[in-house]
């Protein structure tokens, strides 16, 4: 595989092969952690790491795995990596791990992981598989961060926990502004994601469905 096709492997997940907005993978765990940017960011990193390394491991093992237990072996590799990530989060960023709670465990069933293992890692060498994992994790992460940015900005008036909307604007301080409570609730994550897809597909017309 030459460098050109490697570049392609890297860039596809950001546009025409985005795991969330095009391939419809990994939405499950994505939306629940997007109320604030910090957990979304940690989730994005965790998924990227797990995707990249599970891709590499499965790619190394790809010629040795018996076909009948293929899925179980894949799940085992993913689950092991996720447990490691979970233990590390609990030990070093305790506050964030509390916020993510069960959603770290749900990385295991994140369809991106299984999807990439089946579609890419089983048929490719470790290095491209690694690139593919990183790129898909990041493609997923970007969507997560965009959604989280809007929800945190309009829902809490902050970005990464730092107050952006001036305190004096708020009604409680005699101003005119109120945080939008609705945007924090689960349904708005879906609607924001719908809007992102709308914009994405208006720009990239090839992706439009009939």
């Amino acid at each position: 595989m030459n460098s050109n096709s490697r570049l392609k492997v890297f860039t596809t997940p950001f546009n025409s092969g985005n795991p969330v907005t095009v391939l419809v993978l990994g939405i499950c765990s994505a939306l629940a952690v997007t109320v604030k940017l910090q957990p979304a960011f940690v989730m994005a990193i965790s998924v990227t790491v797990v995707t990249a390394f599970s891709n590499v491991i499965i790619s190394f093992l790809r010629n040795t795995i018996p076909n009948s237990i293929r899925i179980i072996v894949q799940l085992l590799v993913i689950a092991t990596l996720v447990i490691l990530v979970n233990e590390i989060l609990k030990a070093y960023v305790y506050d964030v791990s509390k916020q993510l709670s069960v959603y770290v465990g749900l990385i295991i069933t994140n369809c991106i992981l299984m999807g990439r293992l089946e579609a890419f890692a089983l048929g490719n060498k470790p290095i491209p598989a690694f690139i593919d994992g990183i790129a898909n994790g990041m493609g997923y992460g970007i969507i997560l961060i965009i959604v989280a940015f809007f929800r945190e900005l309009f829902g809490s008036g902050t970005v990464f926990g730092i107050q952006v909307i001036p305190e004096s604007w708020y009604v409680t301080q005699g101003g005119f502004y109120l945080n939008n409570g609705l945007i924090i609730l689960p349904p708005m994550a879906l609607i924001i994601l719908g809007c992102i897809i709308w914009i994405h597909r208006s720009i990239n017309k090839d992706l439009q469905e009939k």
């Binding site: 419809v24 879906l190 994601l193 719908g194 709308w198 994405h200 597909r201 439009q208 469905e209």
Partner: peptide, 21 residues
């Protein structure tokens, strides 16, 4: 057109979720 399929499904799910709330 850009909303067809996935996009509108997300939005409808969002509205259904609001109803369920």
């Amino acid at each position: 057109k850009p909303l067809r399929g996935l996009g509108i499904t997300f939005m409808v799910t969002g509205l259904m979720a609001i109803a369920f709330m």
